[in-house]
Nucleic acid binder design. Structure first.
Lengths: 336, 336
DNA sequence: GTGAAAGCGCTAACAA
DNA sequence: TTGTTAGCGCTTTCAC
């Protein structure tokens, strides 16, 4: 089955390729193409099952109608959620998504950026990884629009749509305090990602603003590559000796890991311990009670990211930073 | 910052674009380009930060080094896992992935296929959805290579890499029988997807082969859109009256839903009831005991799919169907 | 060893 | 109202 091109349609109908191009791109009116001819062209395109070659189109117009997306790891719930939202919104705007997963490696991240640039994407939506500052910086020097999501680098001014991690953690901690908790522990990864550090800052600030002295032993960090091991130790520590009465987990993955240990130790939630998570997980469905958590607006974030990027594509210029709020989902895992 | 093209490098070095093209595509030897010149060209490309325009390249060579991937819903664990595997393998083979999520809609599926074709992908990896037969059939008539994964249509001969769902369910059921269970229930979605039906067939066959009369009331179907509601009813039914002593869930999502209800009803696993799942979920981490399950080889499936597709791209012809086996992960959720 | 030039499929300025 | 044609950035044949 031979590939049908504009020329084939043109000769089939007996007109020039220009007319065919006009008609099939919806410029029939504008270019004042004869009604009958326009109809014939449309029909021929249908009959011959014409498929426009997007590459040729893009090469000519210098616009690929394609956006590149790099997530940190598509297996994260955050990633798949945001990917779904972005793909849907892009499709709605007539854009196609070229996809890559950096798996938290800055080398892979760099490579992916290059591949996407070579594919002439009109813009990039990126979840940057640790040590990808250089890559982002060189993007800034190019004129390819990009927006960071979820994570950013505090010392760089870039377009981004982020969570207000500070506020989310602040509000969540305040929620625990309002429930009557004073001994509130916080467990986070020990990495340098700004968004995670912001959660710590929010936690501390909330305590201080409510006249609670932050207890160093209650602010724990686990290693990313040994978090399960470290978590066991952490939970053990927090539930024996100078017990805390609530634990706030900085991510869903940490919450699962922590809850697992809590189940093992047969600690009753919320009777003996309150529990709060950043983000939710389907795993919570199997916990003994619904888990209170701060919920990220993935749909919204994806939609905003796409629209911000497309705005940038069409009229570059201003830098835009949007901070979204989490929704506090109060459930039974926090004793009143 | 002006976009650098082959021509810019050529004039910068003082040679023709042909030489530049040869050198930058690693054909310097083959085309016997002068060593010095080759070196100069490479250097200039580096200096000027040359980025090849993949679109122009593809247009000319009629090869985009791009594969299209359509999953049923990127939020499924299966989807994100397989996407990760496919993207990684494609990257290894120097291919880029263009991505779409059909969200189980055949309309969206169709659209996506067209978009990907327009983008001149070299091939497609597809998880077909219900009612996408027509779309697949018309792909067959084109000469664009594609391979189906996870799901197929029994009355169509297509390249595919699938699970041997029959065998997986057969073996899983046999496992339960060997553990001493006779009253084994099976809960599945009531949809028409062949791979899910095969699981039913395997379940029934295993029972019969071991001299157990399949009990109609123990083979239950829940509606896809009301599975939680139906699941509650199902679990209730199976644990009161003529009780079964083991439940085999046809998917991880069903298992989570079922286990949730089992927890609610305070039924002890495995003491009062054994439980087996098809596929695993991080949710199982929070269940009272590790859940036995049949594990899908996602990495392998993704890798094979990519390689099968690329073989097809390079030398079309034979139809290839590969069936993979699950790995049976026996855990505590099945009483011996 | 190297260069000139055609042409991939399309758009859009210009001519008619 | 329609047709002609240059050219997007690259590869590759053919000539030198």
């Amino acid at each position: 089955m031979k590939k049908i091109g504009l020329k084939d349609i043109a000769s089939h109908v007996g007109v020039s390729t220009a007319l065919v191009s006009y008609v099939l791109n919806g410029q029939a009116e504008e270019k004042q193409v004869g009604k009958e001819i326009a109809e014939k062209i449309k029909q021929a395109a249908e009959e011959l099952n014409y498929r426009p070659n997007q590459l040729a189109k893009s090469l000519k117009t210098r616009k690929s109608n394609t956006i590149g997306l790099i997530v940190a790891d598509i297996n994260y719930r955050f990633s798949s959620g945001i990917t779904r939202a972005i793909e849907a919104e892009a499709k709605r705007k007539n854009y196609t998504v070229i996809f890559g997963s950096s798996n938290e490696s800055s080398d892979k991240f760099n490579e992916l950026v290059n591949v996407l640039i070579n594919h002439q994407v009109d813009g990039l939506i990126l979840v940057p990884v640790e040590h990808s500052e250089a890559s982002i910086a060189s993007l800034q020097k190019s004129d390819l629009p990009f927006v960071l999501i979820d994570r950013n680098f505090p010392n760089m001014i870039t377009n981004c749509v982020l969570l207000d991690n500070y506020k989310a953690a602040y509000d969540s901690t305040t929620h625990l305090i309002n429930q009557g908790h004073k001994k509130i522990a916080f467990i986070n990864y020990n990495n340098r990602l700004f968004n995670l550090q912001e959660r710590n800052r929010g936690y501390i600030a909330a305590l201080e603003d409510h006249g609670i002295e932050p207890h160093p032993a209650w602010s724990l960090f686990v290693r990313q590559n040994h978090y399960e091991q470290d978590m066991r130790k952490a939970i053990h520590q927090l539930t024996s000796g100078s017990k805390c009465d609530a634990i706030f987990f900085a991510t869903d993955r940490l919450a699962i890991s922590g809850l697992k240990e809590i189940v093992n130790l047969k600690i009753k939630v919320p009777e003996e311990l309150s529990v709060f998570s950043f983000d939710e997980s389907e795993a919570f469905e199997l916990f003994s009670c619904p888990v209170s958590h701060a919920r990220q607006p993935l749909e919204k974030m994806g939609k905003i990211a796409v629209n911000m990027l497309l705005d940038l594509v069409n009229k570059p210029g201003v830098v835009n930073q949007i901070y979204l709020e989490t929704e506090l989902v109060a459930a039974k895992s926090c004793r009143e």
